[in-house]
Design a protein around this nucleic acid. Sequence first.
DNA 1: GGTCCCCTCTGACATTTGTCATGCCGAGTG
DNA 2: CACTCGGCATGACAAATGTCAGAGGGGACC
Lengths: 204, 204
Amino acid sequence: MTAAVRLLLADDEHLIRGALAALLALEDDLVVVAEAASGPEALAMARAHEPDVAVLDLQMPGADGVKVATSLRAELPGCQVLIVTSHGRPGHLKRALAAGVRGFVPKTVSAQRLAEIIRTVHAGNRYVDPELAADAIASGDSPLTVREAEVLELAADGAPVAEIAERAALSQGTVRNYLSSAVSKLGAENRHTAVRLARERGWV
Amino acid sequence: MTAAVRLLLADDEHLIRGALAALLALEDDLVVVAEAASGPEALAMARAHEPDVAVLDLQMPGADGVKVATSLRAELPGCQVLIVTSHGRPGHLKRALAAGVRGFVPKTVSAQRLAEIIRTVHAGNRYVDPELAADAIASGDSPLTVREAEVLELAADGAPVAEIAERAALSQGTVRNYLSSAVSKLGAENRHTAVRLARERGWV
DNA sequence: GGTCCCCTCTGACATTTGTCATGCCGAGTG
DNA sequence: CACTCGGCATGACAAATGTCAGAGGGGACC
């Protein structure tokens, strides 16, 4: 038999991380060599321990799973990345795949399944949860231009047009035009529902 | 030695729930007698198995932890409720305590600590995470009147005043007045940041 | 080179919000 | 009983936002 698969586990919830580590340790071909509670910590741990597979939570303090995955692919090409998440938005999946992530699963899977998927990913194959994949295909690509998305993001926390314009170094009129076109493209009634829709689809 | 503490575990994430069950099972004075993935299911399971302690996730499909706790206190007074959550907002803690919940902890605690806390709660004592408690005290009580909070909630998804007015059976002017006073009470710049602030503090 | 599409801007207009003053009613409190 | 406070409303005004037409510049693609 070959050597056990060396794992890095990153999740900011200690309870989850610990429990997961315990469960995966039951599989005798898997061994957890490092744990992390934040994005930067995950990177540091990966550099130090060079795991075969990194199991990353999508939402973590510091840097999210996708950002960590991007850095990881550059620094440790031999390390495959598997992302685990509670809220699987279509856009996240796309960004993750674009970043070279090999697996993407929701936290609703069982530990058994997760172990299998870790093996799949380690073998060099890819695995994406079928339901999330279906959502991603159904929701399609973002119809927003780069600037529209940018402005929409700045509008996300309820900032007035004047502030958005300043932060984006655009004129107020331009900002309103972008917002207007984004709103109509998304079929929303106003900028705020537009923000919500774009969020749900993972386009911002 | 007394009989083991019988537990109900409710969390919509299978991965977490399973892992948690496995870890708690390692403690020989704790036994998981039932698991649930949603609010209603948790209630049904509790009726069927009459656990000593119910460990509930705060955010679950169907009915959240606090709602389940309320029903549980009415139907099974002997069952103590412990709430576990990823996002500990001050208002949630208050509502939980008002609903008769005996324990409230973030998911950042270790399984060891959780086991201890389960014993504490089972013994009839209360336990609230110190940091969450501090937040709750610091953020104080909601300054909003019932109607202000109601209207603010209806405004939460970006609906225009006309729609809020219709749904609340109020005149548009009244809605705007409520929103205006809520915004000024919260020190926000507009209704949308007000919604965000109220959300963060758990007041909606 | 012509034709799109995106980026950027301006100006004007209608609509929606935010704010304020003011009034009436009912419940609770001194 | 008078007073206060919350709920509800109206009307009016100022400010922010949404919508539209138009216009110049720069890439990309055929």
